[in-house]
Lab assay of single mutants.
Amino acid sequence: SEEEEEEWRRAKERGEEIIILGILWKPNDEEAERRIKEALRRV
């Protein structure tokens, strides 16, 4: 969703871990980033 995407962007800017759509994303975690982008597209 729009607000999840916004939340994720803010976490990326701050360089902090975030759990979004049930996926743990850490800074520079390209695999998780790809999965999150896929999940955001499906929503």
Rank of each mutant, 00 (worst) to 15 (best):
S1I: 15
S1H: 15
S1F: 15
S1L: 15
S1N: 11
S1C: 15
S1A: 13
S1K: 12
S1Y: 15
E2R: 14
E2A: 12
E2M: 14
E2I: 14
E2C: 15
E2L: 15
E2W: 14
E2D: 12
E2K: 12
E2V: 14
E2N: 14
E3N: 14
E3P: 14
E3W: 15
E3R: 14
E3F: 14
E3G: 14
E4I: 15
E4V: 15
E4A: 15
E4L: 15
E4Y: 15
E5G: 02
E5D: 10
E5M: 07
E5Q: 02
E6K: 03
E6C: 14
E6L: 06
E6Q: 04
E6T: 02
E6R: 03
E6I: 04
E7Y: 10
E7N: 14
E7P: 01
E7C: 15
E7D: 14
E7R: 15
E7M: 12
E7F: 15
W8H: 06
W8G: 05
W8D: 04
W8K: 05
W8A: 06
W8L: 15
R9H: 13
R9E: 15
R9N: 14
R9L: 15
R9W: 11
R10C: 14
R10W: 06
R10N: 12
R10G: 11
R10L: 07
A11Y: 07
A11I: 15
A11F: 06
A11R: 04
K12F: 09
K12S: 07
K12E: 05
K12C: 11
K12W: 12
K12T: 09
K12L: 12
E13P: 00
E13A: 11
E13F: 04
E13W: 02
E13G: 04
R14L: 11
R14C: 15
R14V: 09
R14I: 11
R14N: 11
R14F: 08
G15P: 02
G15L: 06
G15I: 05
G15C: 11
G15D: 04
G15M: 07
G15E: 06
G15K: 07
G15A: 05
E16N: 08
E16S: 10
E16H: 08
E16V: 13
E17M: 11
E17I: 10
E17K: 09
E17F: 06
I18L: 05
I18E: 01
I18D: 02
I18M: 02
I18N: 01
I18W: 05
I18Y: 09
I19R: 08
I19N: 07
I19L: 13
I19P: 04
I19S: 05
I19T: 11
I19F: 10
I19V: 14
I20G: 01
I20T: 00
I20E: 01
I20L: 04
I20F: 14
I20Q: 02
L21Y: 01
L21T: 04
L21F: 06
L21P: 00
L21D: 03
G22K: 00
G22Y: 07
G22W: 03
G22I: 12
G22C: 04
G22P: 00
I23E: 05
I23P: 04
I23Q: 02
I23G: 02
I23W: 00
L24I: 08
L24S: 09
L24N: 06
L24R: 10
L24E: 07
W25Q: 01
W25P: 01
W25Y: 04
W25K: 00
W25R: 00
K26T: 13
K26P: 05
K26N: 09
K26I: 12
K26Q: 10
K26R: 12
K26L: 08
K26Y: 07
P27Q: 00
P27V: 01
P27G: 01
P27M: 00
P27L: 00
P27E: 03
P27H: 00
P27F: 03
N28V: 01
N28S: 07
N28H: 09
N28A: 08
N28M: 09
D29N: 02
D29R: 01
D29G: 00
D29P: 01
D29F: 02
E30M: 14
E30L: 13
E30Y: 12
E30A: 09
E30D: 13
E30C: 10
E30I: 13
E30V: 11
E31M: 06
E31G: 07
E31F: 06
A32T: 06
A32F: 02
A32M: 02
E33W: 04
E33T: 09
E33V: 04
E33N: 06
E33M: 06
E33Q: 04
R34Q: 13
R34I: 10
R35A: 13
R35N: 10
R35I: 07
R35L: 13
R35T: 08
R35H: 10
I36F: 06
I36R: 01
I36L: 05
I36Y: 02
I36Q: 00
I36S: 00
I36K: 00
I36W: 03
I36D: 03
I36M: 05
K37G: 03
K37D: 12
K37I: 13
K37R: 12
K37W: 05
K37T: 13
K37Y: 05
K37L: 15
K37V: 12
E38G: 07
E38T: 01
E38D: 13
E38R: 01
E38N: 03
E38Y: 00
A39C: 07
A39E: 10
A39D: 03
A39S: 04
A39R: 08
A39Y: 01
A39V: 07
A39T: 04
A39I: 09
A39N: 02
L40M: 09
L40Y: 00
L40T: 02
L40S: 02
L40V: 08
L40P: 02
L40W: 02
L40D: 02
L40Q: 04
R41A: 14
R41M: 09
R41G: 10
R41C: 14
R41K: 12
R42H: 10
R42Q: 14
R42I: 12
R42P: 07
V43G: 09
V43Q: 13
V43Y: 10
V43R: 15
V43N: 10
V43K: 14
V43S: 13
